[in-house]
Every structure is written in structure tokens, then in C-alpha cells.
């Protein structure tokens, strides 16, 4: 395997999850970037999240 899978030879293409200022900074430098429209899973409901976590663990 090449170190870091040859990352240094590739064009950087970024998925940004979270702060939009980072997306805007990259966009303003014409870097290929996609803003993922992320939302908290289970509507951020802690109880539901823990239930979902348990379900996933059972797979």
C-alpha cells in the first residue's frame, strides 16, 4: 500500500460535515467541497439514540 494511499498525489475533494464557515473557506478557494446537510440522528433525542445504538449492536 502506498503511504496514505497516495493522498499527496491526488486532488483533494472534501466532504464537510458541520461548521459552514469551513465549507465557505474552501469554496472561496475553488476547492472541490460538498456540504453534507447533517442532522442529529433520532432528532437528537438521547433516549431514542441509545435505543438505536442497542439495535445496531444486535446486528
Amino acid at each position: 500500500m502506498k503511504p496514505l494511499n497516495g493522498l499527496f498525489e491526488k486532488q483533494l475533494k472534501v466532504a464537510n460535515l458541520g461548521l459552514e464557515t469551513f465549507y465557505e473557506d474552501l469554496k472561496s478557494q475553488s476547492v472541490e467541497v460538498i456540504q453534507v446537510d447533517w442532522r442529529p440522528p433520532a432528532g437528537g433525542n438521547e433516549k431514542m439514540l441509545s435505543l438505536l445504538g442497542k439495535l445496531k449492536g444486535k446486528k
Binding site: L12, K13, A15, N16, L17, E24, K27, D37, W38
Partner: peptide
């Protein structure tokens, strides 16, 4: 920020843009 394409998840982003190679995560 422009009215650009905004997928709802990383998986969707990847299915449209398989060349993505860096995730910047600040959640």
C-alpha cells in the same frame, strides 16, 4: 454559500461524488 447541492448524508454524497477523499468533521 451559494445554492449548491447538499446531500443529507456522507453516503449520499459519496454515491454522487465517489472521488471524495477527505471528510472534515466538526459536528
Amino acid at each position: 454559500a451559494g445554492s449548491s447541492y447538499r446531500p443529507a448524508s456522507l453516503q449520499t454524497a459519496l454515491s454522487n461524488e465517489p472521488q471524495l477523499n477527505m471528510a472534515l468533521i466538526s459536528l
